[in-house]
Every structure is written in structure tokens, then in C-alpha cells.
């Protein structure tokens, strides 16, 4: 690891009308590191990822990638930067109208300009990498179970071999066994790609499995960061309440989704 973080976020602010979601969020992620951001529902975890990848423009603050500012870039430059990210959406966000194989090959054709035949060959390899066979390739997303959809979405995310992998609630809605399978696949994919990973979740088991470090998001800011192994004994009352799932404590959960 070098001193220069792969991703440096400073003073990130984002509001939706009168609802101030991010209030000056700071976070550094080193190259090759896997950071997990935990926090309750409605605390702005997804907003953080969307600002990072460029789906939302922050109201204030800066995001640097390899020391270069990526906020406020003109659309073309922003598109080029976006190509370095891979995002696993919470519900997969697979394209309903095309089969699984075309879903996985999509980014290879559109972002990397590969010929369709070659892209489909690579897509088959990526499907195999997440434990799916040729029988699934011809199916449509609506025909798949939740776990299979997540695997396909993961295959699509890693297909373009991005520098930075973002995982939005990767185990939400899955049973514990499938959650473990997805976590192992994420670890394997991140390791094989040698990429930097940012995961947002409120699944503590998953967070401890995936993350090198865990950061707690509360009230629009990162209030605690530490190695994944220390999260159970952080000494922070907010983190303790969240990790142990206690109703009593300083955290007042927001109810609105962004």
C-alpha cells in the first residue's frame, strides 16, 4: 500500500430537499483494501455509493481517485472514470429483456468495445467463476432465484475487470447459506481481480467476512473506522448498539429511503 489512498472522500454532502443525508463525510480507502460501510436503513449508504460512482452529484465535498478529483467532471471524463468502477446493485438490476449471458456480456460490448462473440465467451467464463453453468446462460432474469440473480449480477460486475468494486447490500434478502456463498464469491473475485472494494451493508456477519476495515455511517458522517476484527469491541456506543442490534441506545433510526 502507498500513502496515497486509492479513494479519498472529503466533506461529502448531499441533501434531498430539506433532508440532509450526507453531512461532510470523510473516508479513505487504500488500494487493494476492502472497506465495509455499515449503518442503519436510510442513513445514506446507497447515496454514498451513488456519489462515488457518479450516478449522483454531491452538493459539496470532493472525491479523489488515485489523487485525481473525480467530482464535477464534464460528462465524457466522468464516463471514462465510471468505467473503472463495477457496481453490484442491491437487487441485481439485471436487464429483464435480455438473457443472462447477454446481461453479463453487456459491459464488455458497451464499455470495452469487444465483439459480441468474444464478449459472450468471456461472459461464460465469468458465469463459471460464480458457479453458474451454461444452462443458466440462456435463461431470463425473471426465471432465476434471488441467489442466482445475485451471482449473475456479480458476474456482470466483474466481467469488465474494474479497478474498484462497489457492493450495495450484497446479501440482503438472501438466506444465511446463500449469503455466505455470495460473500465467499465476493472475496474470491476481489482477490482475483486485485481490486479495491467498498461494500455497504447492515448485515454484520457479511461485513466481518468481507471487510478489512469497517466504517460506521451515522447522521451523514463516518463516526467510527477500525479493523473488521475490532468492531465487536469498538468502545463506541453507536457502533455497539448497531452491531449488537439493541433498540436502546443513542441511535435514532431514520425511516425514509433515499
Amino acid at each position: 500500500m502507498t500513502d496515497l489512498p486509492k479513494i479519498r472522500i472529503r466533506g461529502l454532502c448531499k441533501a434531498f430537499g430539506a433532508n440532509q443525508v450526507l453531512r461532510g463525510l470523510d473516508l479513505d480507502i487504500a488500494a487493494g483494501e476492502s472497506v465495509v460501510v455499515i449503518g442503519g436503513s436510510g442513513t445514506g449508504k446507497s447515496v454514498l455509493i451513488k456519489c462515488l460512482i457518479g450516478l449522483m452529484e454531491p452538493d459539496a465535498g470532493t472525491i479523489e481517485l488515485d489523487g485525481k478529483l473525480i467530482t464535477g467532471l464534464p460528462p465524457r471524463q466522468r464516463e471514462a472514470v465510471m468505467g473503472r468502477f463495477g457496481l453490484l446493485f442491491q437487487n441485481g438490476a439485471l436487464f429483464d429483456s435480455v438473457p443472462v449471458l447477454d446481461n453479463v456480456a453487456f459491459g464488455l460490448v458497451s464499455a470495452k468495445g469487444r465483439p459480441m462473440a468474444e464478449a459472450k465467451r468471456t461472459a461464460m467464463e465469468k458465469l463459471a467463476q460464480v458457479g453458474l453453468g451454461a444452462d443458466v446462460a440462456a435463461m431470463y432474469p425473471a426465471e432465476l432465484s434471488g441467489g442466482m440473480r445475485k451471482r449473475v449480477a456479480l458476474a456482470r460486475t466483474i466481467a469488465t475487470e474494474p479497478d474498484i468494486l462497489l457492493f450495495d447490500e450484497p446479501t440482503t434478502g438472501l438466506d444465511p447459506i446463500m449469503g455466505d456463498v455470495i460473500d465467499q464469491l465476493i472475496l474470491k473475485c476481489v482477490r482475483e481481480l486485485g481490486g479495491t472494494a467498498l461494500t455497504i451493508t447492515h448485515d454484520m456477519t457479511s461485513a466481518k467476512r468481507i471487510g478489512d476495515r469497517i466504517a460506521m455511517l451515522y447522521d451523514g458522517r463516518i463516526i467510527w473506522v477500525g479493523p473488521a476484527g475490532t468492531v465487536d469491541a469498538s468502545g463506541d456506543e453507536y457502533v455497539d448498539q448497531f452491531v449488537h442490534g439493541r433498540v436502546e441506545g443513542p441511535i435514532a433510526f431514520a425511516t425514509r429511503r433515499h
Partner: peptide, 20 residues
């Protein structure tokens, strides 16, 4: 209905992240 469903299920965001 089709594009609206794509919006709701984040498929439009997925298109953007895949450089489309």
C-alpha cells in the same frame, strides 16, 4: 411501463454504470 420498471429496479442506473 417498461422504462418505469427499469427506473424503479435500478436497471437504468445499471446501464449508466456499464458505460451506456
Amino acid at each position: 411501463a417498461e422504462i418505469g420498471t427499469m427506473r424503479v429496479t435500478e436497471q437504468i442506473d445499471a446501464l449508466t454504470t456499464l458505460s451506456t
